[in-house]
Nucleic acid binder design. Sequence first.
DNA 1: TATTACATTATAATCTTTATAATTAGTGTA
DNA 2: TACACTAATTATAAAGATTATAATGTAATA
Lengths: 147, 147
Amino acid sequence: MSEQRLQEAIGTLKESGVRITPQRHAVLEFLLNSMTHPTADEIYKALESKFPNMSVATVYNNLRVLREIGLVRELTYGDSSSRFDCSTTEHYHIICDVCGKIVDFHYPSLDEVESLAEQVTGFDVSYHRLEIYGTCEKCKALATQKH
Amino acid sequence: MSEQRLQEAIGTLKESGVRITPQRHAVLEFLLNSMTHPTADEIYKALESKFPNMSVATVYNNLRVLREIGLVRELTYGDSSSRFDCSTTEHYHIICDVCGKIVDFHYPSLDEVESLAEQVTGFDVSYHRLEIYGTCEKCKALATQKH
DNA sequence: TATTACATTATAATCTTTATAATTAGTGTA
DNA sequence: TACACTAATTATAAAGATTATAATGTAATA
């Protein structure tokens, strides 16, 4: 079923005049199929067996290209490395402070906050980001076991 | 007037059993007086003349200590380096995409979103962060001039 | 097929942050 | 005040993520 999303994404690439190389295709496909918002390094490691000669720079280059044409969003959280997300629909994220897991979370867009911010600060608002932090169920269970 | 806030903060340090060294005092004072949410490197550069022998590690160490006792908050945005904020009162931030300026923005805490997220995801929520992005008045004016 | 422009690879460099070990300096107590 | 204990600082190195560079390879097109 994500086959369709992949075809759509490849269509977007073609429209943008971006070449579809095997590595680029693989990065895109991996991102579309992954629910975990992987880091660049995770993508690199995942594709290593398929492309033994691939360079880390290629992963970064492709992520940049995909981001520039709007297929991929870069998420910069507290930890050291960025995570990447195929931005198909609008959603927020909830992040586990213990294990770093990121789960999608749907909530109506906070338009009211944006418009108030415009009034108060005089900015032209273009977008916002919201993340919620806490402990996921798995880590809660592990913490209970230890006691 | 921020003298009072500084004294309060020093009180908190003492209560926590943390030593008040000249460098630590300077980092804290600089953060309290700065409205710009500086990076570690900016703090280091600002205090260089006062403490020519100070190490960058000292800045990081002190920021970590101040963060651990809750006097300072670490902000990780899209750019490469963290910014630091004396978290005295709860507030959100609005960030200029053009010049990077960060302005404080007060809005009632989004408790409703937090509680819904708990229900939907099963997480124990501890906090959230919200940032609004846009163009500040100054950059808007500059953009208009160019046309 | 030849050309051109874009991608990839390999490598080095940069930048931020953390770790380590030795030295220095605060702080409580005699 | 002086001592001793412990934490903090310094200098340095190391780690980790990302970007830059130059050479090589490859896709698309005339």
